[in-house]
Design a protein around this nucleic acid. Structure first.
Lengths: 196, 196
DNA sequence: TGTACATCAGTGAACGCGCGTTCACTGATGTAC
DNA sequence: TGTACATCAGTGAACGCGCGTTCACTGATGTAC
């Protein structure tokens, strides 16, 4: 079949977005290219018209996931001026986020495997984390003097908290981890005094 | 070959301990049973004299890793009375720990994959995390009223911090993540005022 | 003390399976005349 | 407007590979006599 000029680009983008979701949900090794293409109504052979190999897809899919997080941060920044930080905590440490890894932040899903990945993928993560840090720092700016440091501490804490909340199979413990994390990490930001 | 009575038990234990290290270093899917047995000077066929399947090894190896963490906490508790919390942070967020995942805490290595694992493995993690929380809480007891909550918040934060420090391939950023995490999370514990 | 035998931890060939990757092919469509 | 052709996104059989798992076998050793 021959298609319009943008058709191949669209397919390329669809593969990336489907993969981005699937990787977060099932892990990188948990997603086979054959199954992935089938999800899109295509066959596995066509994959190599779009990417030289699986690793290239992984880097593009991770880039895409970080991009989504960046957009989310911008969205929060523009819609909740003055209470960005607490909104980020609310959303990041929500049951909704915990229960839908495929739609959420890539860090709790895949960061734990990063030190075992080839360098191009780690590179994408490194840049993604730096960008995350910068954007968070911007939102915290003015509230503290060391917003860059606060940003990376907050990101670390949120990632760990969501990771543990997902890991346990006891729903009550999981809920508690989210609740306690939300409570303590807002203290970390000095938000406690603002709220009370 | 026929051996002394304890010989099989010893082999069983050696498999578990080698696997426990290998899983943390290479991930569960990254460790093949054939290679694992070869590391021990055995052949892959013998594996099934010790375990019904790989999943059983995974649960035993994870249990073993949590046990090691528990011993480490006890060690800190008995050797640094009065400054347990800061010693835990020092050690957990150290370059040594970051650079040796195989010998370290299982959580930054494998917790991110747990929500994709079968239930028996998640069960081991759930119990391990509860035990971690209780032991940490005991060390914090007296310093705060809500030591259970503080314990799980601290654990979350440390796990996330080490995970990100390992994920990035920029050594300076990685060091900074550790340093900033150490700084901020000791604030979270109210240790800052104690030290200054 | 010496010999025959039972035990059983460990061996290694073989299995089916899904993986990433390759490649000769297809066939609908845009284009040239 | 109608026809022949070139394009190229997508097809699907085939590849080698490592995986988890099975199983008939081995052979050193403890034990019985």
């Amino acid at each position: 079949m021959r298609y319009s000029k943008e058709h191949k680009q669209q397919t390329h983008q669809r593969v990336i977005e489907t993969a981005s979701h699937a990787f977060r949900e099932k892990g990188i090794d948990g997603v086979g290219l054959s199954n992935l293409m089938k999800q899109l109504g295509l066959t596995h052979g066509g994959f190599y018209d779009h990417f030289p190999n699986k690793e290239a897809l992984v880097t593009e899919a991770c880039t895409c996931a970080f991009e989504k997080s960046s957009e989310w941060l911008e969205h929060v920044a523009s819609h909740y001026p003055g209470e960005e930080a607490i909104k980020i905590l609310d959303s990041y440490l929500s049951q909704q986020h915990r229960d839908n890894p495929g739609d959420g932040c890539i860090l709790p899903s895949l960061a734990g495997d990063m030190f075992r990945q080839p360098d191009p993928v780690r590179q994408v993560f490194t840049e993604g984390i730096k960008r995350y840090q910068n954007q968070l720092a911007q939102l915290l700016e003015g509230k503290t003097e060391d917003s860059q440091e606060q940003a990376i501490a907050l990101l670390s804490a949120m990632v760990g908290c969501l990771t543990l909340a997902r890991a346990v199979n006891d729903p009550m413990l999981s809920d508690e981890i989210l609740k306690v994390g939300h409570n303590y990490f807002s203290k970390l930001l000095g938000l406690e005094s603002r709220q009370s």
